[in-house]
Amino acid sequence: MESAMKFELPQELNAKEPPERRGIRRDYVKMMVLNKTTGHTEHTKFFQLDRYLKKGDLLVLNASRTVPAVLKSIREIDGTEVEVRLAHRKNESIWEALPVSGTLIKGEIIRFSPSLTATVVEQSSDSPFVSLAFNLCCSSLYNQIYSLGEPVRYEYIQEPWNLDYYQTVFATIPGSVEMPSAGRAFSWELLFRLQKKGVKIAYITLHTGLSYLLDDKWHKGPDKNFENYEVSEETANMIRETKAAGGRVIAVGTTVVRALETVALEKNELQAHTGWTNLYITENTKLQICDGLITGMHEPEASHLQLLSAFVDKDKLYEAYKGAIEQRYLWHEFGDMNLIL
C-alpha cells in the first residue's frame, strides 16, 4: 500500500453545513488553484473558475444523482426495527446494503412501507453487506426510496440537511449513495459562462458507493470498492476531439478520473463503455486521459489524496494543503474547492 499523507486537520475546519446555510452561494466557496508542475498556489473563489480555463478545454462532470440511502425497515419475522444503508446498486431491483442496527438473515423479508419490501438474498460472515431484492424496480423503486429515505451523513454533520443540499445542479441519473461532491459548487450561471468562453462540457455517470462502514474492521480500499460507471459515445468523442486539438481534459471529481482512466486502461484507448471499476489510482499511476482536476478538500490519509498525487507530486500537495489549513479552508462535501492544473 502507498504511504498515506498525514496532517492535522482542526475540528472546526469540517464543514458542518452547506454554504447556502452559511450565507454564501454554492459557487462562492473558496478555491485553491494548484499548479501541478511548480506547486504554486493561488487562493480565489470558485465562481472565478472561468479565469483559469481556456477556450477548447473540456470539463467532464458526473451526472449521477444522490439517493437518500438511509432507510428504516421492520423485520417481518418479529417486528423489530432494522436501519439499512444502501451501498451499491446491483441492478434495477437489487441493492447491496449495510445493516446498521440489528442483523439480517438470508431468506428473511423486511418491510419499508405498505408497498415496499425486500428479501435478503445474500448474506455472509466475511462481509458486512447483505443483498436486498426489492419487490419493486426502476422508477417505482426510486420513488419509494426518495419518499422514505434520508441522505447518508457523517459524524461531522450534526443536522439532517435536506436531500437537495446533497445534489449537484446538473445531476440527472439517480444512483449515488454519497454525493459526487466535486460538482456541488457549480451553478448554472457559471456553467453557461464557461460555455460562452468556449469551454466544452461533457458528462459521465459513476454511482458512488458507501465508503464509510461504521466499523474499521470492514474498511475497504478503493480496490475493493466496485462502482458502476458509464461513459457515452458522445463523451468519448468529445474527449478524443479535445485531445487532438491540444485542449485539456479536466475531470470534476475523483469519480470522473476513476471512470475515464478505467476505460483507457481496459480498452487501451478511450471509447464508450459501461462497467464496474475498482481502479486504485496512486502516485505511480500514469494518467492517460485527465490533464486537470476539480475536487474538494480530502481528509488526512484518505485514498482520494493518493489519487491527487497522480496529478501533482506529494510534497507539493502537502505544502498546498498546509496553506489551505492556514487559509481556513473548509473540508468535506459542503466545504471548499481545489483546482489542480
Rank of each mutant, 00 (worst) to 15 (best):
K217S: 09
I289S: 09
K286F: 10
T103E: 15
S93H: 15
I201D: 00
L308C: 15
L214E: 13
P114W: 05
L260S: 05
E266M: 14
A310G: 10
T168S: 15
G335F: 07
I325Y: 08
N278K: 09
I204V: 15
Q195T: 04
S140F: 04
F129I: 10
N237V: 11
A310P: 07
R21P: 02
K36H: 08
L190A: 08
A324Y: 01
T242G: 03
T255Q: 09
S211W: 02
S127W: 10
L305I: 09
K217P: 00
L136M: 14
M297A: 09
G79N: 15
G292N: 13
C138F: 07
K322A: 14
W276P: 02
E189L: 08
R153K: 11
M1P: 11
L330N: 05
M337H: 01
N228T: 08
E333D: 06
I239G: 04
N278F: 01
N62F: 02
A182M: 06
L61I: 02
E108S: 12
F226V: 01
E299P: 06
G246W: 04
S309G: 03
V152A: 00
T295F: 10
E299W: 03
D215S: 07
S125Q: 14
K196Y: 04
T255V: 10
R85K: 13
G39M: 00
F112Y: 04
T168C: 14
P128K: 15
G209P: 04
V121R: 13
M31P: 04
V257L: 08
Q288T: 06
M1K: 07
F134S: 10
S115K: 14
G149T: 00
D216Y: 04
Y156M: 01
R75E: 06
E8R: 12
